[in-house]
Amino acid sequence: MERLKADFRRKQEIFKEDGADVSMLRIVMADGSSANILYRCMRWFAAHRLGLVAYFFQCLNKYINGCVIGSGAEFGPGFVIMHPVGIVINSKVQGEANITLESGVVIGDEKGKSPRLGSNIFVGAGAKIIGDLHVADKVKIGANAVLTKSAEEGATMLGIPARPYQRTTEQAEQ
């Protein structure tokens, strides 16, 4: 329950950063919050070796939200699903605190190995993170980017395949 509260507090912070100072009730009713609730319920039952009940919550999330998160996927506090439709996360994925996902994100396995995510990560709509890689802290992954190699701390990853974004001198001056 503490992690779910932390998820909602983080979502409220994100809304506030975007200029919308909204109540906790509005956060709980916002798009994606039901996916967070069902994910945290699934994880609790999976952690307590109640796999059948965990599977029920996984299926419920899939049918209600269009969001598939494997029962072994573990995220720290501050995990925020902004828009759940199309999200697919492999059971072996491990993530730390304050990870924000937009719609259509895929975090998947390749040859039995899954990504490891640090803290304070934003993943844009439609982005894919695939294989045995590490996404360091404070990374932003742009919409529709395909990340197949590790990302260094503070990087903004864009493109297919995703590469660190480098501002040119001209862009910095504008």
Results as ranks from 00 to 15, higher is better:
Lys149Cys: 06
Glu2Tyr: 02
Val85Ile: 15
Ala136Met: 07
Tyr55Ala: 09
Ala35Leu: 11
Tyr55Leu: 12
Lys11Ala: 15
Trp44Cys: 06
Asp132Leu: 05
Ile121Arg: 00
Glu2Asn: 12
Met82Gln: 10
Trp44Lys: 07
Arg43Val: 07
Met157Pro: 04
Gly142Cys: 11
Asp109Arg: 09
Ser91Ile: 05
Val28Ile: 15
Gln171Asp: 11
Pro161Ala: 12
Asp31Pro: 11
Gly78Cys: 10
Gly95Cys: 06
Ala125Arg: 03
Phe75Lys: 01
Leu60Lys: 08
Asp18Asn: 12
Ile141Gln: 00
Gly76Ile: 10
Asp137Ala: 10
Gly159Arg: 05
Gln58Glu: 14
Gly124Pro: 11
Met42Ser: 13
Gly66Asp: 02
Asp132Gln: 07
Ser119Gly: 04
Ile99Gln: 01
Ala20Leu: 14
Asn144Val: 04
Arg49Glu: 14
Asn120Pro: 05
Asp31Leu: 11
Ser34Val: 13
Pro161Trp: 04
Ala35Gly: 15
Arg40Glu: 02
Gly142Pro: 04
Phe79Cys: 04
Ser23Asn: 04
Asp109Gln: 13
Lys62Thr: 12
Arg40Asn: 04
Leu147Arg: 01
Gly126Cys: 08
Phe45Tyr: 15
His134Glu: 13
Gly104Ala: 06
Gly95Trp: 04
Ile160Tyr: 01
Phe75Cys: 05
Glu102Ser: 11
Lys149Thr: 14
Arg167Cys: 07
